[in-house]
């Protein structure tokens, strides 16, 4: 009888904690990069030349990673939907790192001025190579570090 009771209690605890885990896992929000640590730190030109030299290797190295990229602000763009983008690039280089800002942190992007040094943290989603438009490494959910 006592054994049965213990088993019943254990079973209930397992079901409740399992359910709670499932529920919180199901509702888990994407991480906020302002409070998470970067996996790698590198410069705009390092990141761009890596992708320009070998896309496949760079994909393996950088995709889904949180990168803290330092470089010069080429421009700050705002699209029709009100989303902000910070473009990092070296002078005279057609290629750039395009940082799509996290909506909850984009006010920091508004304050950036062109031609100033900045470090931006974001998740690398890949490389768009385009001869006509210039190639870009794309970072998503970005936050301005300094």
């Amino acid at each position: 009888m006592r054994k049965k009771k213990i088993i019943l209690i254990m079973l209930t605890v397992t079901i409740i904690s399992g359910g709670w885990y499932g529920y919180s896992e199901y509702n888990r929000k994407p991480i906020d990069l302002s409070i998470s640590k970067a996996d790698l730190q590198l410069s705009t030109s390092e990141l761009i030349s890596s992708f320009e030299n070998n896309v496949q290797e760079s994909n393996k190295k950088y995709l889904d990673k949180i990168l803290a990229v330092s470089g010069v602000v080429k421009s700050v763009e705002k699209n029709d939907q009100g989303f902000y983008f910070v473009v990092l690039s070296e002078r005279g280089n057609m290629s750039s790192v395009r940082c799509s800002m996290d909506e909850t942190h984009q006010q920091a992007a508004v304050l950036l001025t062109e031609n100033t040094q900045v470090t931006i943290k974001g998740v690398c989603t890949g490389f768009n190579s385009d001869e006509l438009l210039g190639s870009d490494v794309i970072l998503n959910r970005c936050v301005v570090m300094k």
Binding site: R28, P30, I31, L63, V123, T125, G126, F127, N128, R141
Partner: peptide
Amino acid sequence: FAILMKGFEFEKALMQ
């Protein structure tokens, strides 16, 4: 059009 598949943002991390 060109699009990087990893750039899709979902409200729920698990879905993404």
